[in-house]
């Protein structure tokens, strides 16, 4: 599976530019999409998931024209939208079974086996007969994951899949995804940088409808090796002073005090100590560079 996106542009009727001549190549692997709110991640994913028409550009999936041969895409697609609801008064089993039929899993025994396996995997087995509408947010999200994985999809698009999951469930899901994501294309959008770090072999950072960075997380980290410095700042005045002096990547609160991270080719001063770069640094730096341009 290889997904080739070329020159994708989309402007909404209200004038908001969602995608600006965006091109990407996504291979047979886990592909992470990082970007701030409104960057165009969801627009991009909806377009790949056949739910939205671009103004211009093309998407090719192993010879399938995604924009015109939608049905062919839908047959091999597993899609988890960022936000979704459920029908009232239907159980998880019934709903998954129904969706499996719609996805062409025609053999009853196979369907049953798949539905049961997914309920087990998403830890919904005990509540499989309960109405979906009574599910909590996390349970609903797990149901969403289960339905996206029905019928062994070869293209999986998951939009913020770990939102609303508790840490244990998040790990479970990432495990599950990585176990099936060997020979297929998985596109995962998230604002949790750790998801990408843990899971993805390739990633892209998107902002304002453009790709700011594309590569493997490891490469991106290597590029920053030795250039991230950290320091604890006690007062707001001090922070203000440093802000004008250095390129601050991020600040965190640690026990009520600011820990700032600064990007610098050489040591910015003795108060700073060198720290190993994180993917978050890559992300913030990419964004702030884009802002400056």
């Amino acid at each position: 599976m290889a997904l080739t996106i070329r020159g994708l542009s989309k402007t909404y009727p209200n004038g908001v530019v969602a995608l600006k001549n965006l091109s990407l190549s996504i291979g047979n692997n886990m592909f992470g999409l990082l970007g701030p709110n409104g960057a165009g991640k969801s627009s991009l994913m909806r377009t790949i998931a056949t739910l939205q028409e671009p103004d211009a550009g093309s998407i090719d999936l192993d010879g399938i024209n995604v924009l015109t041969q939608k049905d062919a895409v839908r047959r091999i697609l597993g899609y988890l939208p960022q936000e979704f609801g459920v029908y009232p008064k239907l159980s998880a089993t019934d709903m998954l079974n129904h969706l499996a039929i719609l996805k062409g899993v025609a053999v009853v025994a196979e369907r049953k086996e798949m539905v049961e396996a997914l309920l087990q995997q998403t830890n919904l087995w005990q509540v499989r007969k309960k109405a979906l509408s009574t599910f909590s947010g996390g349970m609903k999200q797990r149901f969403g994951i289960a339905q996206a994985l029905l019928a062994n999809p070869r293209l999986i698009i998951v939009d913020e899949p770990t939102a609303g999951l508790d840490p244990a469930e998040r790990n479970r899901f990432l495990n599950l995804l990585s176990s099936i994501g060997r020979d297929i294309t998985v596109i995962l959008s998230t604002h949790i940088v750790d998801d990408v770090r843990e899971l993805c072999s390739r990633m892209a950072v998107i902002a304002a409808g453009k790709v700011l960075l594309e590569g493997s997380p490891a490469e991106a980290l290597t590029a920053l090796d030795g250039q991230i410095w950290s320091r604890i700042v006690a007062t707001d005045d001090e922070l203000r002073g440093l802000e004008s002096q250095f390129q601050i990547v991020s600040t965190h609160l640690v026990s009520g005090q600011h820990e700032i991270r600064v990007f610098s080719a050489s040591s910015p001063g003795t108060a700073f100590r060198a720290v190993p770069p994180g993917l978050e640094d890559v992300y913030f730096l990419t964004l702030s560079r884009n802002n400056k341009n």
Binding site: R75, G104, V107, R111, A117, N123, N152, S179, I180
Partner: peptide, 24 residues
């Protein structure tokens, strides 16, 4: 009830999903 039922299952081993055929 929900709290009781959704207590996580201990096993963390990921079983492989079965293969199914799609017929259109």
């Amino acid at each position: 009830q929900e709290a009781e039922e959704s207590r996580p299952v201990r096993s963390r081993v990921v079983a492989t999903l079965p293969r199914v055929r799609q017929i259109f």
